[in-house]
Design a protein around this nucleic acid. Structure first.
Lengths: 355, 355
DNA sequence: TTGTAAGCGTTATCAT
DNA sequence: ATGATAACGCTTACAA
């Protein structure tokens, strides 16, 4: 098999130059304190001189495991997951764990393939979004020889660990906020009905139904992926179906922003004639004019904690609490504050802040 | 070393069950047509029955290469890179290439580490953002034993291939658009001065300078990462420094949206008293009220082409054109259209579209 | 503290 | 078309 023209400096090269055996170099790399200071220094010098970098494939093959943490999210474009990913990367920094990202594109089949691919790499851990895995995927995960964290949601029967919150309750709280603000004919705008969206819709229904205020005609959804433009369209649909609607809970912030712009275009006063509440509380919501009420979710923290929990578990520090509920927070702002002095009709907004 | 309790079914297991040698199974997996139909079918059946999945580490070690495409971006939160990543994933779908993401967080040192880590994995290719690698990184890349695509920008001396556009020209065109629209006291709002931002600022200067309209006092920048909120703050700063400014070129769309909201808050008529132009043309820009002028960049296409180019090169299809300039497109909208009938002062906008 | 031997699961090479 | 054999670069297990 000879030399196939590989560039690499190997452990053996380093060992030879440093006048020790390969095993000592291997140890110096992973448990520096189990090697004499003298060897350690000599080895370190040679490594730098030769520019040695360990071959992860050889390592994985010999050790039967890797320091890879597989992360499976349904979207890489979505702001929400971008924040979660950043939290994961932040927590992984300075640790030996190497994050590897997989994008399931909201497809259960792609998700199953990803899990299979990740498992074939003998990962140290897996972080997977949601609690709605297919039966096949669930089977793989249940018998997986690594630690697993489910994120984004809490629910019963975790495979292992969980970091999330209740979307049902969060949506319920948002809807209650609209009720408390005095709105009565409340609509729901939703895009891409993934399982979390559906549970939010459920929370919406459960909040309005007992009060006799649930009107299915005010629920407007579409399978299309969400966008600001779509928020405008959904608002337009809602207004043509149920023109007397006086507030909307938007299933995410993009839709809420689009709904606000649509109101401004139509000279509908917000919050006077129409209340608007979003979901996630992206940075933009506070900066908008009028500022937009939303439900703050702790996305970055979710990623951070998922990774930290995994790290702790892998270090053998068993957590007493395998399911972490991060909660949420309704953030009331101008778009649902009827006590604000309404702007002129065509302004479509109020002054929420001094200039 | 015995059995360490690994879960895996191996090639040898499949070979034994199928009554052939390991090599035949290996061949059947990678070059099905170099194996008799009989063996092929028998092997396929056993693979499915046993649930065999190849071990990528063993494969990498034996073959000396992998089907990994390393992708290095400076941010995973930024919409722009999210779109590029989606393009890459889209183009990788259905190919044997496995995309692996690295986040350099705008740090040249982190970037160098990532390159080193990726190279240690013997990747089939590397996609790296920008043309401003450190000398150390450049050295690694020049002697890398794999194909390389630089994305986001075009420039001289590609390591190998390149897919991008000229940020300098794009910013110049945007500034020219503001001039053509009749604005004369034009400002620049910029956050995080990465190399691309700086080249955009350069394009801005080069456009205004010959006309004698460049006023450094109207250039407001900050090292902070960009956000909608920050766009408002920068606009506020600009107005206190140079209150007679009549238009701004914002270095990205978030800033532009924030600037627009700030104008609305202050009852500054847009586009009447203040023209606003963003950069990238995110989906939101068209949906805003008033709709916001921006410079469309082909982010998804950039990722798609980078990956396709790489795929073609790896298949041995040499491209005649190793540097692809995707260009850009100034998209004029309401925020720079002075011919529109101005809304009332406090409206801060115009009706860009019928309801 | 250090070294020796064996093998991890796959593919390249060369025969047959 | 198929197979025997020798690596690939590293780590586990055990011995010194």
């Amino acid at each position: 098999m000879k030399n196939r023209g590989r560039s690499g400096v190997t452990l053996a090269d380093v060992a030879r130059e440093a006048g020790v055996s390969a095993m000592t170099v291997s140890r110096a790399l992973r448990n520096p304190d189990r090697v004499s200071a003298r060897s350690r220094d000599a080895i370190q010098a040679v490594i730098e001189r030769l520019g040695y970098v360990p071959d992860p494939a050889a390592r994985a093959l010999a050790a039967g495991r890797t320091n890879v943490i597989g992360v499976i999210v349904p979207s890489v474009t979505n702001n929400v997951f971008a924040d979660v990913m950043r939290g994961i990367y932040d927590a992984a920094e300075g640790t030996p764990w190497q994050v590897q990202l997989g994008n399931s594109r909201y497809s259960p089949i792609a998700e199953e393939d990803l899990v299979r691919t990740f498992l074939s790499q003998k990962p140290a851990g897996l972080i997977i979004s949601g609690i709605d895995q297919s039966e096949a995927t669930a089977g793989l995960l249940r018998s997986a020889p690594c630690r697993i964290v489910q994120i984004m949601e809490t629910g019963p029967d975790p495979f292992d660990m969980m970091v999330g919150f209740s979307h049902r309750e969060a949506a319920g709280a948002a809807t209650r906020h609209l009720l408390d603000a005095g709105y009565r004919r409340i609509g729901f705008l939703g895009a891409r009905l993934d399982p979390r969206t559906q549970r939010r819709l459920e929370g919406f229904r459960v909040c309005l139904s007992p009060a006799g205020l649930l009107d299915e005609a005010r629920i407007v959804t579409t399978p299309q992926p969400s966008s600001v433009t779509l928020g405008g369209h959904l608002m337009a649909d809602l207004l043509s179906t149920a023109p007397d609607t006086d507030a909307v809970f938007c299933n995410n912030d993009d839709l809420a922003v689009g709904a606000l712009f649509e109101c401004q275009r139509r000279r509908i006063a917000v919050p006077g004639q129409m209340g608007i509440c979003g979901f996630n509380d992206l940075e933009m919501m506070a900066a908008a004019h009028p500022s937009i009420t939303s439900v703050l979710t702790f996305r970055h923290e979710m990623g951070r904690q998922a990774m930290s929990l995994l790290g702790a578990a892998l270090r053998g520090e068993e957590t007493s609490q395998p399911v972490v509920d991060l909660g949420f927070e309704v953030v009331p702002r101008a778009t649902t504050d009827r006590t604000l002095q309404p702007g002129r009709a065509e302004g479509g907004g109020v002054r929420a802040r001094a200039p």
